[in-house]
Design a protein around this nucleic acid. Structure first.
Lengths: 189, 189
DNA sequence: CACGCTTATGCAACTAGTTGCATAAAGCCG
DNA sequence: CGGCTTTATGCAACTAGTTGCATAAGCGTG
């Protein structure tokens, strides 16, 4: 149940319409909590019905019209409550690790190319994060809010660095594997 | 659509009943692809209907009876196909990072304790992985399959190490924040 | 102004994963 | 044997997230 809280956070940072939120999810909050525009519109409707946000009155709500929302005090309270509440970490799911484990049984054929491609994608994401860091956190911009937001961005940077290095390691391991790329025991069953 | 492939991998490593699979998911494959027993039973039914696995004939299938499955050639082919097919990495979702971002807006009150708790959980998981590494990958056990499986385990070890360190970093950052644990601008709205 | 393109909002149907509970056999124990 | 616990399988209902499509206003252009 994190999407409503992601939206509340984004709206507190800046009141926005559904589409604006969607765009901001695509390039900031979405890096660790992605959402499609349909999820966002649906959730905005629910949050409004619950009285946690409201549509800004200025622009009349009509189809094809921007409809911006702002957070109400009840919404801020709910977000504060949720932020402080203890939560167990959810197990992460990682398809690539699953594929590697499968490859140990059915052979590595075809996997190396995708490993290489993922390495490039992670490196590109890393460069994007570094760009954001340069833009949003120049030396000196270190108030308490900045430090927290910077901390979160650092997690993104460090994670992409981690995966880039790990994939290098995996590729090196692949290079040391028997030539054909097919495990010796593959298809024996 | 990874759960069926996770199950195929597990069954190729060793034919098992639903409950055995559930247990193995809890302590091995589940570290990067978790599943409940209901998911597993449902998926076993589907895989059998599709002709990718079959119930081992030995023990008659009755309620309260173990019913073990093995992978059929079509299942192995499907798994090999899936393993080799290119897939885009899915964006990871991380609630803790979201909470930190929210804390930049509504205040950090109550968060530090959970940060500390998560640190301990990650450290405990790390110790568990290291135990598995000692048990399953003693020096010398380095055939091609071992090396791939070890690679996957190393990802788990390195990730837990990463999070332990990152949480240390986050806690150090918290220590440097204004005393009360509440952001200056919190509740100003 | 008629056409097509972009912006913006939204419904419906689907897939995946979770939670709560039901059922039944097997083993233990007084 | 009668009740209790553990093992094992499974259904039903629910929540969360995804995909495909519909609708309509605004804007540019021949």
């Amino acid at each position: 149940m994190s999407l409503p809280h992601a939206i509340l956070t984004a709206l507190l940072e800046k009141p926005s319409s559904g589409l604006e939120l969607t765009r901001r999810f695509d390039k900031s909050i979405g890096y660790f909590w992605s959402a499609t525009h349909q999820q966002i519109y649906r959730e905005l409707g629910k949050l409004e019905a619950e009285g946690l946000i409201r549509a800004l009155p200025s622009e009349q709500p009509a189809r094809g019209q921007k409809k911006a929302y702002e957070v109400l005090p009840a919404g801020r309270d709910e977000l504060a409550r949720w932020t402080a509440a203890s939560q167990d970490p959810k197990p992460h799911r990682d398809v690539m690790l699953l594929r590697l484990r499968a490859a140990a049984v059915v052979g590595t054929e075809g996997l190396e190319a995708d490993l290489r491609r993922h390495r490039e994608l992670h490196e590109r994401q890393l460069e994007k994060y570094r760009e954001i860091e340069r833009r949003d956190f120049p030396p000196g911009k270190d108030g308490p809010e900045d430090r927290l937001r910077h901390l979160v961005l650092r997690a993104g940077i460090d994670l992409e660095t981690f995966w880039t290095q790990w994939l290098d390691h995996a590729l090196a391991e692949f290079a040391g594997l028997p030539d054909a790329g097919e495990r010796p025991d593959a298809r024996k069953g």
